[in-house]
Amino acid sequence: MKTANLMLRMLGCAIAGTCAQAAAATSVAMPATLAPEMVNDAALMTPVQAGDKGAAVLRAQILLDRARFSPGELDAAYGSNMRQAIVGFQASRGLPVSGTMDAATWAALGGDSAPVLVSMTLDVADVAGPFRPLPAGMMARSKLDALGYSSSLEALGERFHASPALLQQLNPGRDFGRAGEQLVVPAVEAATPMPVVAKVLVDRSDSTVSLLDEAGKVVAQYPASTGSEHDPLPIGDWKIKGVGKNPVFHYNPKLFWDAKAKDAKTTLAAGPNNPVGVVWVDLSKDHYGIHGTPEPSKVGKTESHGCIRLTNWSALALSQAVKPGMTATLQE
């Protein structure tokens, strides 16, 4: 599909973090101690449930992520996205659906025995940038020639699916901007290739996007933001028309109920901090698509302007699994 057509369909799509009536994404205090050996050696039979934090929670989050049932941004704290990941994984494996990491759920994940935290050394490319702070507001950001990462820490967070706060806690005193620095990071690479995907299912009731195989089995699930009362999710069966990588964003304030009074039509450059992130999966419903976001911590916790918003890494994984003509069902 031509880039111009993709850009036209992006008008009216979600801008992460601008919904005035969005449910607030509350910050969670990090557990006081989170040594790597504690996480890698966390007892697999330790129950993990709502309100828990710490080593066992982080181990479960990483194992779920590697099983393609994403808990969203890794943070070592059990929240709503982690609950949906557990529920989805349990249902896919025919386990009792409880939302708790019980013995049976740990056992089902137990086939993945590789360490969940590993060491890596920053190289020159990791810290080269360019990195620069992002100004507030669409008009100010539209003046930039690229919307890249603001820091190497932010870039590493996206690379390893982790909150910057978690990376800092795993690496106290480390310099994330120095080549040669050794870090401890989550090992998020899936152990097996993505199964063949036949359909996409977007479910507003639990704020998820699932990928289904030919038999209707869920093979991957990601947390998502899926519309709002102002821009409801367009329920129905739609077709995937194409995928655009590193899209620019054409902003029209008339299509946004919460636009600033002084905003004007403008174009925002490509980059991970672009309003639709690093990828746009175009749907046959005009102006709607599945896309990334510059604010992964808010996915599944704030509203969107009607489109389906994923973390950048989840959006990339989905974009590599779908094909033009594939059905995307959007349901309540």
Rank of each mutant, 00 (worst) to 15 (best):
V196E: 14
T46F: 04
N40K: 07
F256H: 15
A107D: 14
V57D: 08
Q84T: 14
H305D: 13
A107N: 07
A269C: 04
L183F: 10
A32G: 01
I62R: 00
M45H: 05
G325Q: 09
P247C: 09
R66P: 08
L8A: 14
K241A: 12
I308H: 02
V124F: 02
F131M: 04
V48E: 10
G277S: 12
D213W: 04
A55I: 08
F249A: 11
T266H: 02
W106M: 06
F131L: 04
D175T: 06
P133A: 15
N81S: 14
T18C: 03
G180I: 12
S284A: 12
L8M: 08
P96G: 08
D52C: 06
F176W: 07
S284W: 01
S228W: 06
M1T: 13
A261T: 09
L212I: 05
N171P: 06
P135H: 10
G137H: 09
P36G: 12
G94Q: 10
E295P: 00
R141P: 01
L74V: 10
D65K: 08
A103T: 10
M30P: 07
A162E: 08
D231T: 05
W106T: 14
G110Y: 01
A162N: 03
A14M: 00
P186G: 11
K239W: 02
D231N: 12
E73K: 02
V202Y: 03
V57I: 04
L183Y: 05
P47G: 07
T26Y: 05
A190G: 05
L144G: 05
G236L: 09
N5A: 14
W280H: 04
V243E: 09
D206T: 10
A140H: 01
K298C: 06
Y288P: 01
L147E: 11
A162F: 05
D75A: 11
M138C: 02
M120Q: 11
L167W: 05
T105F: 04
S163H: 06
P275N: 08
V209H: 01
K301W: 05
P31F: 09
V124S: 14
V200T: 12
P31C: 13
H161A: 15
Q90E: 15
M10A: 15
D282A: 14
L310F: 09
A191W: 00
S225N: 09
K2Q: 11
Q168H: 02
P36A: 14
K217P: 00
M38C: 04
F256A: 07
T192G: 01
A91V: 08
